[in-house]
Design a protein around this nucleic acid. Structure first.
Lengths: 222, 222
DNA sequence: GTCAATAATCTTGTATGCAAGAAAATTGAT
DNA sequence: ATCAATTTTCTTGCATACAAGATTATTGAC
């Protein structure tokens, strides 16, 4: 029973944040969480610290912990960073992918296709995450894969918003097909380029969606 | 006096690790550090947690905290990751660098030159870190800059070993000149390529140094 | 009724205590 | 003398306690 609280708490909170049950900006009360999980504040604090480390949580001194809320500028920058990281992964994966990797990527892609056909957005986003993660793994560079995965997760709460963008799923699937094609052909340059664009387009779509949402709320407020 | 212990501890330890006063693999005793800094174990643990997050410290459950010791594979992967990150920074910096950035990069380069001329290895490595950091900043992407800087620091303890590689300083300075030239010419592709190679060469030199050191110790052991 | 000042309350940061698991030391057997 | 098993000691993981700063509520003046 001991030595397992912190990972347990961290994973539970991470899940809550990534899945959207906890919203960006929301405050995370130490005492509340401690009670909810039946532990003292100490392991809660450690878990929060670790989440702060992976970029999901922000700890403001003497103010408490909050689910990270990225501003517009930070979002733009993060998507750009993500695009570059994915581009690297694409290039290396195209060069180094093994049989196992190939299978995993294709399998994830098929899951994406199935979800798109069923118009199941939730499932699509999960399969999408797996598709990208499979590419990270295929780079055969675990450090790179881990870093990129961390970033992916930190951005996940924001990607959820994209569920609202119309026809995003079909577009995304089409882009995936292009990426897969380049990977299978071991065309490193093309894989790099397509992955970068794939993420950048997401980012742009996302930002314009954000602008619309912001305009709407501002139209009500003042 | 309150609310400032954790940052203080974290910075002190980070400094000790980066500067090499604490060696990779070394165990970090909670009680010992608490006494040394005149605080209780609690803030020490939090500081260690945060350092674990930035990759400088590894916490083995129930075993304690250790200065991260990367194995050969992890080192190779890390240098490759670093090379790609720096390459991205180089490309973006070449495109976006402002007047201020330009000055900072040139200034750091001059410091490198002076240190090389004086054959002052310690100073050279500090100036070298600043030269690279100035390029990160010039990307105008703070997320990217922060990530790359974090990685740089995590690898710093290992770079120290390179102090022993003969003629490394002159070679490095020469490479810097090429990078600077590309940056000032706003030649993004060239800056990208040169920065990638610069880091990769470092990594390779480093790995062969490591192999030699390892062979030496193994020749004694069995 | 609104605002300011003060008091009460809450929340975090740090210290301390205790128990479980790991490391080290001691003992006993071969 | 070496090795294994057991005991002892150490160290970490978690709980609890308390104090200082932040937040909210209350009171009083205008």
């Amino acid at each position: 029973m001991r030595g397992e609280q912190i990972p347990r708490l961290r994973e539970a909170l991470e899940d809550d944040i990534i899945s959207g049950r906890l919203r960006p900006g929301q405050r995370l009360d130490e005492v509340g969480m401690a009670e909810r999980f039946g532990v003292s504040r100490t392991p809660v604090r450690e878990a929060l610290n670790q989440l702060a480390a992976s970029g999901l949580v922000e700890i403001k001194p003497r103010r408490g912990a909050f689910v990270v809320l990225l501003g517009p500028r930070e979002l733009i920058e993060s998507f750009e960073l993500m695009a570059e990281m994915e581009a690297i992964c694409g290039r290396l994966a195209a060069q180094r992918m093994g049989e196992e990797d190939r299978r995993a990527i294709i399998a994830a892609h098929e899951e994406c296709r199935a979800a798109a056909q069923a118009e199941d957005l939730g499932t699509y986003y999960e399969a999408n995450a797996r598709f990208h993660a499979a590419i990270y793994t295929a780079t055969a560079n675990r450090m790179l894969a881990a870093e990129t995965l961390r970033l992916q997760r930190a951005l996940q709460p924001y990607r959820r918003l994209q569920l609202k963008v119309p026809r995003r799923m079909d577009n995304s699937l089409g882009e995936h097909e292009g990426i897969l094609e380049a990977l299978l052909a071991s065309d490193a340059d093309e894989a790099e380029k397509r992955l970068r664009n794939h993420v950048l387009i997401q980012g742009e779509r996302f930002m314009s969606l954000l602008a619309i949402l912001q305009a709407e709320t501002e139209a009500v407020a003042p």
